[in-house]
Design a protein around this nucleic acid. Structure first.
Lengths: 149, 149
DNA sequence: AAAGTATAGTTCGAAATCGCACTTTATGGA
DNA sequence: TCCATAAAGTGCGATTTCGAACTATACTTT
């Protein structure tokens, strides 16, 4: 008989909240001075899905208000890690491009994190991570849909 | 042979970050005006582990700076949801107590969230939540220890 | 008991977050 | 074409976050 206890969500979200803070701390310890997690998230996103994205597109991807994305991009521009150009297809919007410096910072941070994760991995059964990843993804997709619907 | 691919952490933390935002949005949609997630987290913590905790104890539990906890508690006090008294055992510290209003707000929010979670649960295999919860806890404990050591 | 060190909490200032209102440009009918 | 509506992005202000420095109290060592 399935348990179907909704308070399970409560407990899982609680753990997720704490893990988010812990993992953010690990990341930010490796970021150059003046950059915080949202900056890196954008650099990483642009690297993975390709640069030339629009701010609104990234705001939706990360589920943050567009004003927050404006602010984050402004910070990255101030550090010379991205640059923005008008979008020829749509006069309202702009596109965001990585600079060489932006790519370099992202690569450096990834490498530094590799060491941290190596250490974390040493004391943890990675098969358990393997096991939870698809479920977390499924849950995320499910909640995304519930939000839209 | 175990995979031992540290970038797994990267992907898992990415999902956790998005899930944190999504679940926070669900929670905050149910909170009374003027309260945000950290306020509720404190109300809930005091209910679960018992009130009379100290600010520093909660700051550690949630992995937030103690200055943030000071601010959060001040907000709850302003809303009359908690009150603080000196700690007779330690002149440096104070203890935080729930008021009746605080308990009531927490209960109302829990109830409202029940409906949300019920709906979420309808379209999701709760056995998968059951499966990931202990692993998330284990990971959280592991990272906590890695941070201290 | 005195001195040095550690801990709990606050104040302060800088930066981040985010809702609201606004401007500009696009789109989809009458 | 004209108009209404929607969408992209920004400016602004209130609140939040959080590190640094500080005060007050406790603990430890001699």
């Amino acid at each position: 008989m399935p348990e179907h206890n909704p308070s399970l969500f409560f407990e899982v979200f609680n753990e997720i909240g704490i893990l988010e803070q812990l993992s953010r701390a690990v990341l930010e310890a490796r970021l150059p001075h003046g950059l915080i997690a949202p900056h890196f998230t954008v650099l990483n996103h642009l690297t993975r899905v390709g640069d030339g994205r629009t701010p609104i597109e990234m705001a939706r991807a990360f589920q943050v208000p567009k004003t927050s994305m404006t602010h984050t991009i402004k910070g990255l521009e101030a550090h010379g890690l991205v640059e923005t150009r008008a979008n020829p297809q749509d006069g309202r919007s702009k596109r965001v491009w990585l600079t060489d410096a932006g790519r370099a910072v992202r690569a450096d941070v990834i490498q530094a994190l590799g060491a941290d994760f190596q250490e974390l991995a040493a004391g943890f059964d990675m098969r358990k991570l393997d096991a939870i990843k698809p479920i977390l993804t499924e849950l995320r997709v499910h909640m995304d849909q519930a939000r839209d619907g």
